[in-house]
Design a protein around this nucleic acid. Structure first.
Length: 522
DNA sequence: TACGGAAGGC
DNA sequence: GCCTTCCGTA
């Protein structure tokens, strides 16, 4: 085999953090048996020895800079046995990721791109760190440290299916460029359609519900194809690494009570995302081993996850989902030091593109009479400036997606109006949040009384949203529709309202309504 | 420097 | 499906 194109060994760890094996596996990319470019990029980012070539961008979560484009291209070419590779070609490949929303370009910054963790991380790392006062993303993303249920294979280990650990920073920082060329492209594991995953997840949830025995464990959940087990999120802001957008180390001490398998097959095209680390669970999900619902754990997880969604600009479709049988956890404030660090500004629940467009078209046909139902939520004006501002205000860690005004963000700009109409109910002003750090967020949500000015304002703001959607290039809109986003956003929209419920501490019954609606939708 | 269409390989 | 290669455009 040609030098530089060998495919037998695993990447050598470096930088003190590891991705789980699947992140490097070709089989984690459905439809491809070869290493994917984004894998490779992550791989480079992981390694200290390539810090001079490519590195996480300071101050921006998930953003990385290609410091030496030619070198990166060369490495990529070597990996792919394409000696003619250059940055132009590589960047073309990167640009294809734009449409997939795996990456986007950081405008105005040369050779700077940003991962979209909604696509990349959340399905696999639902307990993404909330980084209250995050550091600078410089190192490659870490992988959670060992826990009883957690066994990603250690990347360093020549032993593929190593033992235990697997999330340590046991960096044997070999500085070998060849190591990058030696990433194993392992035996493929058949991937499953995500819909199937979701179905299976739900099925298993139902199964457990029926059994009414969520703690007995051993038949609850189990990996099948994947040998990955994740502990559920433990506490936000407690992860050791503040540098990486993948800071996800569930603490061994807290022990993920809810351990669920993580499918390596679930990678880039999540549809809906349950609170399980992955809906991409194998059929054996139903015959698994360790699954507990611990309300506290769930609570922390959900809160953190909600925070992630809001603050990392993740699509609400990545919001946790309660199984139908499950009641949301009670609210309890985080410790004071964490409370300060979640200046969340609530955005209104999204309406969903499908509904927006439907409403748009219906409005064209029939000049819409004022909706019969009152929309009790005053939505903040959606404008780029406002978005930017809120981004900065959000800043749950040091993250501020200042440039994130891409069409993607716009496309996912939420607006609740039509869904409220469709659902035929209105949201009641929730009780005062019991989570103090959300108070500012709540304060920014206005709940106009009937007949007030704010109520009248509402349709105007909705129109702004629709206008923005309208300004999307028709081709892009079509493409996204084609990709099924529209459907996802119906769910997304409800997911978002669920989170509003969670965050604002509204009644459990409200949450259940949304939860059930989501389940029905999906 | 960046974008994206088009064609084609695997 | 995921690039790779080429190229025109901004």
């Amino acid at each position: 085999m040609k030098t530089g194109c060998s495919i037998g060994d695993k990447p050598k760890g470096g930088g003190g953090y590891h991705f789980p094996d699947w992140a490097y596996k070709a089989e984690s990319s459905p439809g491809s048996r070869q290493i994917q470019l984004w894998h490779f990029i992550l791989e480079l980012l992981q390694k200290e020895e390539f810090r001079h070539v490519i590195a996480w961008q300071q101050g921006e979560y998930g953003e990385f800079v290609i410091k030496d484009p030619d070198e990166v291209a060369r490495l990529w070419g070597r990996r792919k046995c394409k000696p003619q590779m250059n940055y132009d070609k590589l960047s073309r490949a990167l640009r294809y990721y734009y449409n997939k929303r795996i990456l986007h370009k950081t405008k105005g910054k040369r050779f700077t791109y940003k991962f979209n963790f909604n696509k990349l991380v959340m399905p696999n790392y639902p307990f993404i760190n909330i980084r209250p006062n995050g550091g600078v993303p410089q190192s490659a993303p870490p992988v959670p440290t060992a826990s009883s249920h957690f066994h990603f294979s250690p990347l360093d280990s020549p032993n593929e299916d190593g033992h235990g650990n697997h999330f340590t920073g046991s960096s044997s920082a070999q500085s070998s460029r060849e190591s990058l060329n030696d990433v194993s492209e392992r035996k493929p594991i058949p991937s499953e359609p995500e819909d199937l995953h979701s179905m299976e997840w739900r099925r298993s949830a139902d199964h457990m519900s029926n059994r009414n025995n969520v703690n007995t464990g051993h038949h609850g959940l189990q990996k099948h194809k994947s040998d990955l087990m994740l502990p559920v999120f433990s506490m936000p802001g407690m992860y050791p690494d503040t540098h990486s957008p993948f800071s996800v180390s569930p603490l061994p001490g807290r022990g993920g009570l809810m351990s669920v398998p993580l499918s390596p097959a679930l990678s880039l095209t999540p549809t809906v995302f349950s609170y399980s680390p992955s809906p991409g669970l194998s059929p054996a999900f139903q015959s698994g081993s360790c699954f507990n619902f611990n309300p506290d754990e769930m609570k922390h997880y959900l809160q953190a996850h909600a925070c992630s969604v809001f603050n990392y600009h993740l699509s609400p479709r990545t919001l946790p989902r309660f199984p139908n049988f499950m009641m949301p956890p009670p609210h309890r404030p985080f410790p004071p030091e964490e409370q300060q660090s979640f200046p969340i500004k609530l955005q209104p629940p999204p309406m969903g593109r499908k509904n927006r467009e439907r409403s748009q078209s219906s409005e064209e046909k029939h000049p819409a009479p004022p909706p019969p139902l009152l929309q009790p939520i005053k939505v903040e004006p959606v404008s780029d400036e406002e978005d930017l501002m809120s981004d900065e205000e959000l800043d749950c860690g040091d993250y501020a997606a200042k440039e994130d005004t891409s069409s993607e963000s716009e496309a996912e700009t939420p607006s609740p109006k039509l869904d409220f109409e469709k659902m035929g109910h209105t949201f009641v002003k929730p009780a005062a949040p019991s989570w103090p750090q959300f108070s500012t967020a709540s304060a920014r949500l206005h709940y106009p009384k009937e007949g007030t000015e704010a109520v009248k304002d509402y349709p105007t703001e909705t129109a702004v949203v629709e206008k923005k959607e309208e300004t999307l290039p028709p081709k892009l809109r079509f493409k996204r529709l084609w990709n099924g986003d529209a459907q996802a956003e119906v769910v997304e929209d409800r997911e978002c309202r669920k989170v509003s419920c969670i965050i604002n501490g509204c009644r459990a019954s409200d949450l259940l309504v949304e939860t059930n609606a989501v389940a029905a939708d999906s």
